[in-house]
């Protein structure tokens, strides 16, 4: 177990380093003059070449690739994300401010997603092939085909424009978070419902269940001690994918609802060529992603001791 954990950790570190290097190389080699874009974003005017050169030196764009990469990586290991090349302010306060908008939204969406899909999948599998089962599969299939940005617009149309129950744009009050959270949450619920449903059905088909029943084990105890852990394994597998879906959805949902979270932070930074900001979001996303997948890998081994590794 210790050796396996060390292996997983080493792999996570290699993957993180690879992501950081790839991101940096991509930014470094992106077409167009970043110094000019930064100067434009900062001064909002056409500038002479020597001003742009000053910006280039100040933003550290005159260094060679490896020098610049190591200059960025060193402080990053101490969680120092550097300074914005547009505003000159430290990255971290602005980044954590954006996270303050994004994390509660992600959490709410996850709660809605699990809160809808778990009972729905459970009810659907009580009578496999029944109308409720078929209806929930149909709705979930449809749900996975609806893109977050369209669902968000539909919800704005119904609840903000027609009924005028909820605010649509901005993030001033908690009420502003309801529509974004529902938009994301329903997307999560759609894909989770299908996975949990087939997980439960597969677990129920296991040959040891009739044996347990014949030994007189109650159906509640079978559900809790035998069906649930078996159904949890495939669910765990997709939770990593679900997180990717959530992060992708966040960028779009924040754009639709005008929320100043990580997604908007990223889109703004890309437009302005603010490399330190883009790098910070990318590294943070990779860190979250790798950490969650590490936790999932460990949970996997605990739930199913036979598994040596997911892709073994």
């Amino acid at each position: 177990m210790i050796a396996a954990l060390a292996g997983l950790l080493l792999r996570a570190v290699v993957v993180l380093f690879g992501t950081a290097l790839l991101t940096f190389a991509l930014l470094w080699n992106s077409p167009g003059d970043p110094a000019q874009a930064i100067a434009m974003a900062r001064f909002d005017a056409l500038l002479t070449d020597d001003v742009i050169d000053q910006v280039r030196v100040e933003a550290g764009l005159d260094r060679t690739f490896w020098v610049a990469f190591l200059d960025w990586l060193g402080p990053l290991l101490r969680l120092d994300f550097g300074h914005s090349s547009v505003t000159g302010r430290p990255v971290w306060p602005d980044l954590s401010n954006a996270m303050g908008y994004t994390f509660p939204l992600a959490l709410a969406a996850l709660v809605i997603g699990i809160g809808v899909s778990l009972p729905l999948a459970y009810l659907a599998t009580r009578r496999p092939g029944g109308w409720l089962d078929r209806a929930s599969v149909a709705v979930a299939t449809l749900g996975t085909a609806i893109p977050a940005y369209w669902l968000g617009l539909l919800l704005i149309l119904i609840f903000a424009v027609h009924l005028a129950w909820l605010p649509a744009m901005g993030a001033r009050t908690p009420a502003h978070g309801i529509l974004p959270a529902v938009t994301l949450g329903l997307g999560v619920a759609a894909s989770l419902t299908r996975i949990i449903r087939s997980g439960i059905l597969e677990a129920r088909a296991r040959p040891f269940l009739p044996a347990l029943r014949r030994r007189g084990v109650g159906s509640a105890a079978i559900g809790r001690d035998h069906v649930a852990p078996h159904a949890a394994v495939p669910v765990l597998t997709v939770l990593g994918l679900e997180l990717a879906f959530l992060l992708e959805g966040l960028v779009l949902v924040e754009a639709i609802f005008g929320r100043p979270g990580l997604g908007s932070f990223l889109v703004t930074a890309i437009m302005a060529r603010d490399f330190p900001h883009v790098q910070a979001v990318v590294v943070l996303t990779a860190l979250i992603f790798v950490t969650v997948n590490l936790v999932i890998d460990v949970a996997y081994r605990i739930l199913d001791p036979r598994i040596g590794g997911r892709d073994a």
Binding site: V15, T19, L22, L247, E248, L266, V282, T285, A286, N293
Partner: peptide, 12 residues
């Protein structure tokens, strides 16, 4: 390398 590419939400 494949893991590194997968260690990031594709759309982002």
């Amino acid at each position: 390398t494949t893991d590194s590419f997968l260690a990031f939400p594709e759309l982002v």
